[in-house]
């Protein structure tokens, strides 16, 4: 069995973690790779922390859920607490630096902890609604599971009908995604050794 990249995305309902997970997995599938995406569903999806599990591989993928992710992304305080269980010594843990009061709860066992100012960047430089696209860029940047171009194509496929009406939106989304890649790269640079 070849290498499988395992990604966990956790956030509040409405933060778009499920759609980000779906788009990444679909893009990988378009690339000809094996992809599996499973949302946590059940009663918890209403008002609880929303968790998405994605696996991308060049060979057969094992069980849909897993214990340790290669990349774990948490977008709220509750999501930090909920997703820490998926962190191991080789995990890159990404969280939004705007989340307050989680310093003491970060999974210190992670291989790397990368705070990124995604919420703030979305608000200041783009539009609050492209927040999840920045996150998508961050995941693509951190994992390299799919080329940035395929991620853009996947977004085009999902939101193309909106871009037709408002071509500016396309640029906004693509720029946001690129920024997401940069944010991760910058955070990694300042990672204490």
């Amino acid at each position: 069995m070849g290498e499988t990249t395992k990604i966990v995305l956790a956030g509040e309902g409405g933060q778009g973690v499920q759609s980000v997970a779906g788009i990444i997995a679909e893009a990988a599938n378009e690339e000809g790779r094996q992809a599996l995406y499973i949302p946590n569903f059940g009663v918890e999806q209403r008002g609880g922390v929303s968790v998405a599990y994605v696996q991308i591989s060049d060979s057969i993928i094992g069980s849909p859920k897993f214990q340790t992710g290669d990349i774990v992304v948490a977008l709220s305080g509750r999501a930090v607490r909920r997703s820490s269980r998926y962190v191991g010594s080789n995990t890159t843990f990404i969280y939004d630096s705007g989340i307050e009061g989680v310093e003491g709860e970060l999974p210190r066992n992670a291989g790397m902890i990368l705070p990124i100012p995604a919420i703030e960047t979305a608000k200041k430089d783009f539009h609050p609604r492209v927040f999840n696209i920045i996150i998508m860029g961050a995941v693509v940047g951190a994992t390299g599971v799919i080329p940035l171009e395929s991620a853009k194509e996947a977004v085009e496929k999902k939101l193309g009908y909106k871009f037709e009406k408002q071509p500016k939106l396309r640029e906004l989304n693509f720029k946001a995604m690129e920024r997401g890649v940069e944010l991760v790269a910058e955070a990694a640079k300042y990672q204490p050794v």
């Binding site: 997995a25 599938n29 790779r33 599996l36 995406y37 949302p39 569903f41 993928i61 849909p64």
Partner: peptide
């Protein structure tokens, strides 16, 4: 099962 029902894969 529910996983197979709800998950997406190739």
């Amino acid at each position: 099962d529910g996983y197979q029902a709800k998950m997406r894969e190739s």
